[in-house]
């Protein structure tokens, strides 16, 4: 079990996920920095991601699409706001149109991920902050719901462990 804690704050539309990995922080950092590694985990298994751009620097832009089981290709983008290797990455993540460029009418969500060294490896804390429920729904509607329900078995395990939901 890698996810050790998750916190949902519906008043502030914030999701916090804390996961632990048996690898050093610089190794875990690499799965964010290296686009070939990033695309192996960013999309759900049925919606694998392809990053066509990943300028991993402050102010850098990323462009990606996911490929769904019916050939749909929802597109998205990142903008990196802060990098403190190998401790912290702040970035914006939004939906893109068919041309791959950001949809201006839809605000991006902001993500902040931190990496801490532990005895057995790395504790990664990913905080996502949303603007409103419309934005949250728009992202899910792009076909990702299907892929995500596959994780439900893991959520069951989370619900069974104490001190998970606050």
């Amino acid at each position: 079990m890698t996810v050790i804690r998750s916190e949902k704050d519906p008043d502030n539309l914030t999701l916090t996920i804390v996961a632990e990995f048996d690898a050093a922080p610089d190794v875990v950092w690499d799965v964010w920095e290296d686009p070939r590694k990033l695309e192996r985990w960013w999309g759900p298994p049925t919606f694998p991601a392809t990053f066509t751009r990943h300028d991993f620097m402050v102010g850098g832009q990323s462009r990606y699409h996911m490929t769904g089981p019916n050939g749909e290709t929802p597109r998205g983008w990142w903008q990196i706001d802060a990098i403190d290797k190998p401790r912290r990455i702040d970035f914006l993540n939004g939906l893109a149109g068919d041309d791959g460029e950001p949809l201006p009418q839809l605000p991006p969500m902001s993500g902040s991920v931190t990496f801490e060294s532990t005895e057995s490896g790395t504790r990664m804390t990913a905080v996502t902050n949303f603007t409103d429920t419309e934005q949250m729904q728009a992202m899910l509607e792009r076909g990702m719901q299907e892929g995500m329900t596959q994780a439900i078995g893991q959520i069951d395990a989370l619900l069974l462990s104490p001190a998970t939901h606050v």
Partner: peptide, 27 residues
């Protein structure tokens, strides 16, 4: 609104749990 927010957060929680699982597999 609040209940809707909780339900939407549940979906994103599923997404992130799955991402953590995939990172573990990759590592």
């Amino acid at each position: 609104t609040l209940r809707r927010a909780v339900e939407l957060l549940d979906s994103y929680e599923q997404l992130w749990v799955q991402r953590a699982k995939q990172i573990t597999e990759l590592l």
